[in-house]
Amino acid sequence: MTAFDALSERERRAWYGFLGMQEDLRRHLNRQLLRDSGLSLADFSVLSGLSNQPDGSLRIFELRELLRWEKTRLTHQISRMISRGLLERRPCAEDNRGSHVTLTEEGRAVIDKAAPLHIADVRRTFLDAVSPRQLDTLAALSEAVLESIEENEPAED
Rank of each mutant, 00 (worst) to 15 (best):
N96I: 13
R123S: 13
T137M: 15
A155R: 08
T75E: 14
R89E: 15
K113A: 12
Q77R: 11
I82P: 04
E88C: 07
H100C: 12
L127I: 06
I78S: 07
E65G: 01
L141P: 01
R97M: 04
R90N: 09
L127F: 07
L135W: 05
E88D: 11
H100T: 09
I82D: 09
R73S: 11
K71N: 15
R124S: 12
S131Q: 07
V110E: 15
E153I: 08
W69N: 02
K71F: 14
D121S: 13
L63G: 01
R84F: 03
A155L: 10
E62S: 07
R90W: 04
A139V: 04
H76I: 10
R90V: 09
L74T: 02
R84Q: 13
R80W: 03
I82V: 12
W69I: 00
F126E: 14
H76C: 14
E147M: 13
L87K: 06
E105R: 02
I149W: 10
F61D: 13
T75D: 14
I149Y: 11
L86D: 03
E70C: 04
L74F: 12
G107S: 00
E70R: 09
L127V: 05
E105K: 02
G85C: 08
I119L: 15
V110I: 11
M81A: 02
R80H: 09
L67D: 01
K71M: 13
I149M: 11
R64Y: 03
I82W: 02
Q134I: 07
R97V: 00
A114P: 00
L66G: 03
S148H: 12
W69S: 03
C92F: 05
E150H: 07
F61I: 01
